[in-house]
């Protein structure tokens, strides 16, 4: 028997129109962000779709926000990180959750061991910046590092904005950025990926 759609109430139709109006200007930006986060079109679509379903019942809240885009980005980022954590916990991806949790811990000054005359891997990036290699390294990067570098290095969110958006301290944020860039530098210089995130990606196929 064909599924019979119940007619929508005036209120529901109003809400739908309002929702469309609120989110439509940001969809393209959100999709491109999602693509950078996930590294794949189908996962980007899933993430944006999940985001829309999640925020649909929160239309009121969205309507009351003066700058909806950072709010939308924050919700999508949290969803993405939650998905990564969930996948890391799943029986098919036996990755210790603590490895990801550590990404959110402030480990102090990431530059504490920097000697005045000794540039580290993060400083040695220039010779590896051909497009193909960068694309490959980016794909090898952990989902969390990709998301973080997308927001800071590509989208240009400031540290102050990211502290609010990602709900973490300045110190934690800078430690995580430093680690993400160092990992990218390792990957660009041809070091074999050894961290847990790369194994996650490999196992997801």
């Amino acid at each position: 028997m064909a599924k019979k759609n119940k007619p929508l109430s005036f209120a529901a139709r109003r809400a739908q129109a309002q929702f469309d109006q609120l989110v439509r200007p940001h969809l393209d930006h959100l999709y491109r962000l999602a693509h950078r986060f996930t590294g794949a079109a189908d996962r980007a679509e899933d993430l944006v779709q999940d985001l829309l379903v999640r925020i649909y019942p929160r239309c009121d809240e969205l309507a009351s926000i003066e700058q909806p885009r950072p709010w939308l980005v924050r919700v999508m980022y949290r969803m993405f990180i939650d998905q990564v954590r969930h996948n890391a916990r799943s029986p098919h991806m036996p990755i210790a959750d603590s490895s990801l949790a550590n990404e959110f811990v402030d480990e102090g000054d990431p530059y504490a061991d920097v000697a005045d005359t000794a540039p580290g891997p993060e400083d040695e990036l220039e010779m590896h910046f051909d497009r193909e290699r960068l694309t490959h390294a980016w794909e090898q990067l952990s989902p969390d590092h990709r998301a973080l570098l997308t927001l800071f290095e590509i989208e240009g969110y400031t540290l102050s904005e990211l502290e609010v958006m990602l709900e973490c301290t300045r110190g934690t944020l800078k430690s995580r950025l430093h680690r993400a860039r160092s990992r990218l530098a390792d990957l660009l210089s041809g070091k074999e990926p050894s961290g847990p995130f790369e194994r996650v990606k490999d196992e997801r196929g």
Binding site: A15, D28, Y31, R32, L33, A44, E45, L52
Partner: peptide, 28 residues
């Protein structure tokens, strides 16, 4: 400089349509 690809042309309409079927939103 690494381009982020654009979505499929029909994706947004499909996504919004899917959301509409996901349940009622609160009228405001």
């Amino acid at each position: 400089s690494q381009a982020a690809p654009a979505p499929r042309p029909e994706f947004f309409e499909q996504a919004l349509s899917h959301v509409r079927q996901s349940g009622p939103a609160r009228f405001s």
